[in-house]
Design a protein around this nucleic acid. Structure first.
Lengths: 66, 66
DNA sequence: ACATAAAGTCAGGGTATCTTGACATAGTCA
DNA sequence: TGACTATGTCAAGATACCCTGACTTTATGT
């Protein structure tokens, strides 16, 4: 699952640690999501979307070709 | 995390087993999500949303009061 | 009563998503 | 050089998500 986390974070000039703090998860969890090591849980995806005031679909891409 | 899966399924007159087949998961997984035992993974949430032609936010409710 | 379908639940097991703590690398700056 | 920040990574462990298989309960219909 691809995502735009790194770009959204860069736009706000936040470190991974700062984003992690705002999401109430560990810095490693943010890093793992950004580097594609795993997908966030659905509750975490909701927190991410709300933090950036976007929909989950705006931020995450499950390969919605068709 | 609350969800409208049971209602959406009822509107289409699908059994849990039939919905599970369409989502390519086990019947127990569908039952567990409907009965609130656990949330779907993000990839499964995307499959659910696409199946019903809705957004994840339309189907799942993370307590978005404010 | 009997058969069938649907829904709910449990056990046991596998993999994914998180945690804390530690360490390496690269970049910036006094 | 030395201190600091940011990022990436690893290990070990807790818990969540999903699996198969089995079983019970409830409802429907013959």
């Amino acid at each position: 699952m691809k995502n735009r986390l790194k770009v959204l974070r860069a736009e706000r000039d936040w470190s991974q640690a700062e984003l992690a703090g705002r999401l109430d998860v560990s810095r490693q969890a943010v890093n793992a999501i950004e580097t594609g090591k795993h997908d966030p849980s659905l509750p975490l995806a909701f927190r991410i979307a709300r933090l950036f005031d976007m929909t989950i679909e705006d931020i995450f891409d499950d390969g919605e070709s068709a």
